[in-house]
């Protein structure tokens, strides 16, 4: 009885304190990101940071389905491509600003994810994975062959005519600020989700779907919502990529590699954690950039080779990913030093 009164009393106050600390930390990180993004002058570094922010957004979005929900989704390239093509096509055919096209793409991706999810999420594990791969290929084939709308294999070019209203800027920093905003949006959503009902339900479904359903977790509903949110974020990333790179084609925005990359970064960083995917993205993009710098484009595949090996090792020996390792180290340190303090 005693234990109960103590724990109910302590728990909320502890939570409030740690929540306050988390929010403060979050505000500091976000502030630092925006300041860096607007002040950074080196073109190369701006580009690197843009790549990191975009990759982190994609990995973070994938993590909602794959990490929290434990669904082996390998078709997120489809949503990336849909985002890129929707805004670009709407701009070229109807002169609709990509800012609105971006939202249209996200909405389209979310609707499609709901539709696909409604029929595939009842499939388990590897079957779901295979279906998502097939679905992406189907989207890629359609885009490749719908020449009049999508430009087929040649793809689409976006003319560079700086005009903020048309999501086109004269400096790279502005694109970077948009990328930071997307990342902040994705990770704030994940952070809130982790602390609220949806996150709890997804975790339970990942751990044991049958047990979760037996205590009333509406499995299909929770998974559909997460799938739609994840797809929408990835589609936003697609538009951002299109506006930044000024050209898209089926290979650059719809290939299976893109789906794998999101999963890889998320898993290496720490599946089902809030900031794990960001760590994975930082590791992946910087190592790729460094290796390319040292060895030139010829050995670009070296990065993929190393990252693939790292991915396998993480899966086999450290499923918590980089974040899990960091937490373990911290625990060990606090155990050593914390112990000393309490003895005193």
């Amino acid at each position: 009885m005693n234990t109960n009164t103590i724990s109910t009393r302590i728990q909320p106050s502890l939570q409030a304190a740690s929540l306050g600390r988390t929010v403060t930390l979050w505000v500091i990180i976000v502030g630092a990101l925006y300041i860096t993004a607007s002040r950074l002058t080196d073109e190369h570094l701006v580009d690197l940071m843009f790549q990191i922010m975009l990759a982190a957004s994609l990995a973070g979005a994938w993590n909602i389905v794959g990490g929290f929900g434990g669904q082996i989704a390998l078709g997120h390239a489809a949503f990336f491509g849909i985002g890129a093509y929707t805004s670009t096509i709407l701009f070229q055919h109807y002169h609709l600003t990509p800012w609105i096209g971006m939202l249209a793409g996200a909405l389209f991706a979310a609707l499609l994810a709901t539709l696909i999810g409604a029929v595939t999420l009842r499939l388990r594990g590897p079957f779901f994975a295979m279906t998502t791969v097939a679905f992406t290929e189907l989207v890629r084939i359609i885009v490749k062959n719908w020449d009049s709308l999508t430009g087929g294999t040649r793809g689409l070019w976006i003319p560079w005519e700086p005009n903020p209203w048309n999501f086109s800027f004269s400096d790279r920093n502005s694109y970077l600020l948009v990328a930071v905003t997307l990342a902040v949006l994705v990770f704030s959503t994940t952070a809130i989700m982790a602390k609220t009902k949806l996150g709890f339900l997804l975790n339970a479904l990942r751990e044991d779907a049958d047990a979760a359903r037996s205590v009333g977790v509406k499995a299909t509903r929770a998974r559909l919502i997460s799938f739609a949110i994840s797809a929408a974020f990835v589609a936003l990333g697609g538009t951002l990529y299109a506006q930044y790179s000024l050209s898209i084609d089926p290979t650059s925005v719809l290939s299976f590699d893109i789906s794998i990359q999101m999963a890889l970064m998320s898993a290496v960083g720490g599946l089902g954690t809030v900031i794990g995917p960001a760590l994975g993205a930082i590791a992946a993009v910087t190592s790729s950039s460094l290796l390319r710098g040292w060895f030139g484009g010829e050995l670009g595949a070296l990065h993929l080779l190393l990252y693939g090996v790292l991915f396998i090792l993480v899966m086999l020996y450290a499923r918590g990913g980089l974040l899990g390792m960091a937490i373990n180290v911290k625990k060990r340190l606090t155990r050593r030093f914390g112990q000393g303090q309490s003895d005193v």
Partner: peptide, 19 residues
């Protein structure tokens, strides 16, 4: 879990392709 099995084989495919 299935996720780990699928990911390990995916990792193998990434390594083989890059190799």
């Amino acid at each position: 879990p299935h996720l780990v099995q699928v990911f390990v084989t995916l990792g193998i495919s990434v390594v083989m392709q890059a190799g």
